[in-house]
Amino acid sequence: MDLTHPLTEDASVYPGDPKIELRPHATHEEDGYRVTDLSLGSHSGTHVDAPSHTEPDGKTLDEFDVSAFEFDARLVDCRGKSAREAIRVEDLPEDLPADADTATDTDLLVFHTDWSDHWTTEKYLDHPYLAPETARWCAEQNLSVGLDALNPDPTPTENASEEEPTGVPAHRALLGSNCLVVENLTNLDRLPERFEVRAYPLALAGASADGAPVRAVAEW
C-alpha cells in the first residue's frame, strides 16, 4: 500500500519552506527527450526527518543504515481529534509498553488523524499534534513516529492558541533520542492495526541530509 503523497506544485509545505516547482528543462519537441527541473526543500511531501533537523549535533540521514528506514508499525487511531487538538499519552492504546524495558515488536507508531484529507488546503496546517509528554513517552520507548499530518508539533498559523506549546518540543524529544519522524503520510484508513513500513529517503549526504522525501510503502 502506497502511503505517499505525490510531489506536485500544490503540495502542502511548512510555512516559509520552499514550494515545490516542476519546470520543463528538455522536451520531446525541442530536444528529443524529456527532463524536468525539480526545485523543492528537503522536507517536501511525504518525508523523513533526521535528528540534525532540530539537533545541532544530531545524526544526518546518511549516518543511518538503510535498515533504519524499515519499521514494524502500529496504527494509533486519533481520528476523533479536531483541529489543533493535542494527542495525549492517555490516547495511546493501553497495551503499548509502559516503560523502556518492556519488550515490543513495534518500532514505529503511526498516528492516524485523517488530516491527509485536507492535503493542499489551508486547513492542513491546523492539524492535531503530539503533546510534548506524548513525544517524550515515545522517545523513552525508542519508538519512531509517523503521522498523516504536516508536523508532530503545532504548525504556526493565525489559528494558534496561547495554550499550545511553542517551538518544536515533539521534534526535539524524538529526534534528540534518534527516533525518526515520518511526516505527511496518506491512505492510513486502508491499513490494519499492525503492518510493516518501508520509507527509504533520497540519498542526500552530509549537512543537506537533515531530511528527505521518501516513498513510503506499507505491507502486511
Score class of each variant (00 low, 15 high):
190 R>Y: 08
47 H>I: 09
57 D>G: 03
172 R>N: 14
177 S>P: 01
118 H>M: 05
1 M>H: 13
89 V>Q: 01
120 T>L: 10
157 T>K: 10
211 G>Q: 05
105 D>I: 12
53 H>E: 14
88 R>Y: 00
151 N>D: 15
86 A>Y: 11
171 H>P: 00
41 G>S: 11
68 A>Q: 10
10 D>P: 06
121 T>A: 06
205 A>W: 06
219 E>N: 09
183 E>Y: 02
98 A>F: 00
193 E>H: 05
23 R>P: 00
131 A>C: 13
66 V>T: 09
197 V>K: 01
46 T>A: 10
56 P>S: 06
94 E>P: 09
78 C>T: 09
182 V>A: 05
119 W>T: 08
24 P>V: 08
148 D>Y: 10
88 R>I: 03
25 H>W: 11
202 L>Y: 03
88 R>G: 02
167 G>F: 12
64 F>K: 04
149 A>N: 15
13 V>C: 07
11 A>M: 08
1 M>G: 12
21 E>T: 04
55 E>V: 02
57 D>S: 02
37 D>Q: 15
20 I>H: 06
60 T>V: 00
138 C>G: 04
115 W>A: 02
91 D>G: 02
163 E>T: 05
34 R>G: 02
111 F>D: 06
19 K>C: 03
111 F>L: 15
69 F>H: 14
75 L>E: 07
49 D>C: 05
22 L>R: 13
37 D>V: 03
94 E>T: 00
112 H>K: 05
52 S>C: 08
148 D>E: 14
27 T>W: 01
195 F>D: 04
212 A>R: 05
33 Y>L: 14
77 D>I: 00
57 D>A: 01
31 D>E: 12
175 L>Q: 14
13 V>I: 13
19 K>M: 09
33 Y>H: 15
7 L>G: 09
76 V>P: 04
87 I>W: 04
133 E>M: 02
42 S>V: 07
217 V>P: 09
28 H>I: 11
181 V>Q: 14
198 R>Y: 06
181 V>D: 12
40 L>C: 03
71 F>N: 02
54 T>L: 07
32 G>Q: 13
147 L>M: 15
46 T>W: 03
33 Y>Q: 08
117 D>Y: 01
77 D>K: 07
49 D>V: 00
134 T>Y: 01
43 H>Y: 07
87 I>M: 06
54 T>D: 07
132 P>M: 08
42 S>R: 12
196 E>W: 06
136 R>M: 02
161 S>R: 15
114 D>E: 14
217 V>R: 10
136 R>S: 11
203 A>D: 11
8 T>H: 06
177 S>W: 01
213 P>N: 06
161 S>K: 13
62 D>K: 02
196 E>T: 13
151 N>C: 06
70 E>R: 11
162 E>G: 02
